[in-house]
Write a protein that binds this DNA or RNA. Structure first.
Lengths: 220, 220
DNA sequence: GAGAATTATGTCAGTGCCTGCCAATTGGCC
DNA sequence: GGCCAATTGGCAGGCACTGACATAATTCTC
């Protein structure tokens, strides 16, 4: 095991006993961690507790996750990979912003399956709010998002046949888009309740405000 | 001392011997830390070394800064406060986006003075790149920026007489603006060399791409 | 199917960040 | 000088994380 592999890593999964066992251990670690985090909070949960709940040693935990943050953000990372894959599958004729918008809306369906294969959906929604309310986790999440944005920008540049070093538009577009997505997630989290459908709805509403917000006169 | 106070905290600084000594200790800690970080890298510098260089105990270090990240980002925090103050001093008639743009450009001048009162400008520029290249610092910086953005959004809402809970435009605008600012800083850092003037120039160039990047057809 | 090669896991010791606690020192004020 | 309040230092300890080595489990090879 060199690094954490995306959900769709290799074309044909080796799927020996070893691989399946590793996947099970990893999933168990994630589930144990998210449950403990939801119950006692992130900072009040020690890695030792997570390892014990998953019935492995602390050292093994750190062989699966580089740090405590990584296990907390594991499902978000999986969804990020799905989002990127969805964008790549968009028709080449589509303009950049509609492609991003379409990809984000198209991701929710697949995301549900990816998540529920590991943890209950309810627990994942709890984690969203946990991240927003835990400074250290929010910081780590924002950093991960900035890496996603970088890859999105490269993909947009590729689609448009541009050199991302020469033309700032891919990075600028993705930065603006990413900013709106974060604000959306945050606003959704603050609303307290609400499921994935509400988040989807809010996403549309906020993205539609991007044009008007940049307009000179808001009173028009 | 309850918390870190902005550069312009109280109307009349008490300025007793005690206060001056505290400020000197704090500035010395920042300078010592940034020098060590620039020389040996962030992770390879221990808090003990910083404290020793500033001739205080480790315990005292943690009375001035909540953690190691905070001292690394101290100057950026000061500039953030200046930026917010600059925005507040903008004419009320100005539209949101021009006000943000004007504030960011107007901040550079004052920033130079604020910085050089504590550390050499050159060292501060080094720190910018250090942050970009140190995962933990970048994460902390992004989180701090998201807090700044929240306050910016509230200020924009106030200027426009809007309820930020009801109208998403302040948050959406600031998120897009903040995203572009981060991309700008990043691009500037990757260019290797370049001073504050280059950053200012790049800021203008990137902000001007915001409209075009959101347009449907980039080939027009 | 037995042994060899590979890989995952456990144990242990150690470093560094950070905190609570209490004693000692220092500055402010009469 | 002498009292009060604030600052500081030292110490013990918890927790995140890492390197090194031994052990146990798979997979490979014949």
């Amino acid at each position: 095991m060199h690094a954490i592999e995306g959900a769709a890593a290799r074309p044909a999964a080796p799927s020996g006993l070893r691989e399946r066992k590793k996947r099970r251990t990893r999933d168990t670690l994630i589930r144990s961690a998210l449950e403990l985090f939801a119950r006692k909070g992130y900072e009040r949960t020690t890695v030792d507790e997570i390892a014990e709940a998953a019935e492995v040693s602390q050292r093994t935990f750190f062989r699966y996750f580089a740090n405590k943050e990584e296990v907390a953000l594991a499902m978000q990372t999986a969804v990020d990979a799905l989002f990127l894959a969805t964008l790549r599958s968009r028709p080449a004729a589509e303009a950049p912003l509609p492609a991003l918008r379409g990809a984000v809306l198209g991701t929710w369906d697949g995301a549900r399956a990816v998540i529920e294969a590991v943890v209950p959906l309810e627990l994942h929604l709890c984690t969203y709010r946990l991240i927003e309310s835990t400074p250290q986790l929010l910081a780590a999440r924002l950093r991960a998002l900035s890496e996603v944005e970088e890859r999105l920008a490269l993909e947009i540049a590729r689609r448009e046949g541009l050199d991302p070093r020469a033309d700032p538009r891919p990075h600028v577009l993705v930065a603006a888009f990413g900013g709106v997505m974060r604000v959306t997630t945050r606003a959704w989290g603050e609303r307290g309740e609400g499921g994935l459908d509400d988040l989807r709805e809010l996403t549309v509403a906020y993205l539609d405000q991007l044009g008007p917000a940049l307009a000179e006169n808001w009173r028009a």
